[in-house]
Amino acid sequence: MTTARTLDSKQQAIVDAAQVAVQSRGYWATVAGRIRDDKVTIVCGLVVLLIVFSAVFADLIALADPYKASMLKRLAEIGAPGYPLGADEMGRDMMTRLLYGGRLSLFMGISPIVIALAIGGTLGLVAGFLGGRVNMLIMRLMDVFYAFPSVLLAVAISGALGAGIGNAIVSLTLVFIPPITRVTESVTTQVRSLDYVEAARASGAGSLTIIRVHVLSNVLGPVFIYATSLISVSIILASGLSFLGLGTEPPEPEWGLMLNTLRQSIYVNPWVAALPGVMIFFTSLSFNLLSDGLRGAMDVRL
């Protein structure tokens, strides 16, 4: 101990430089590198992109008018001339309706999550950071919503408000606020007690700065990932509401509603009747796996 007391600084620098020769790649480069090695995530990401793309550009891709019915072509088989995916019970082109239906299904699936993320995220952040009575008030209020199964709650609220896209979105938002609040709250409480928050306070940061800079940035990642995993649930719930006649109304094309109206034809033409369900399944599965992959790739600490 006594002999090595005066490591001169040059010597020291050489030792240190040799020890840590890792070139910093930057955060996003690391994330991109991880995703590149993960085939499932890439495929799911492409599927999601394809679905979103085809929904947005439905009027460019679609061959026919989604509302144009034809008595003759009712329940046409898949592959019938002019009807690549068959026709529904009114003789409307299935492919066109599936493309257009994606618009509403995605919109009704994603917008409640976005709104719930804003509201629930704020509530959870406030509850987690302030703690004490505020926390208790907010979290117990959320528990009230938790008492109902989410499907039942969505149906009950939609039923009370009446059918319609707006009301369905309101009810779904209410369903998703509690879980998002809860996750945000727990992550915030965790982050709040970490040393770097105290270190920030020790170097003179005020509460607002700490929330804005340190808490928010560390909470946003996990909460955002959690919210994307809810999109799949939300799409299913939204379709469910439409299926029950509480969401979109005919003749609007929407996957859940289409599933409902084709229900009676399941014995006549099961393949066509199942198509909207297949779309819902693939969309929600892809969103789910994608969010899983992102969660793994975006964690800086791994």
């Binding site: 270190a199 800086v300 600490r301």
Partner: peptide
Amino acid sequence: FQEPMVAFDPV
């Protein structure tokens, strides 16, 4: 601080 690991904000 004691733990330089957690005294910096990771993000």
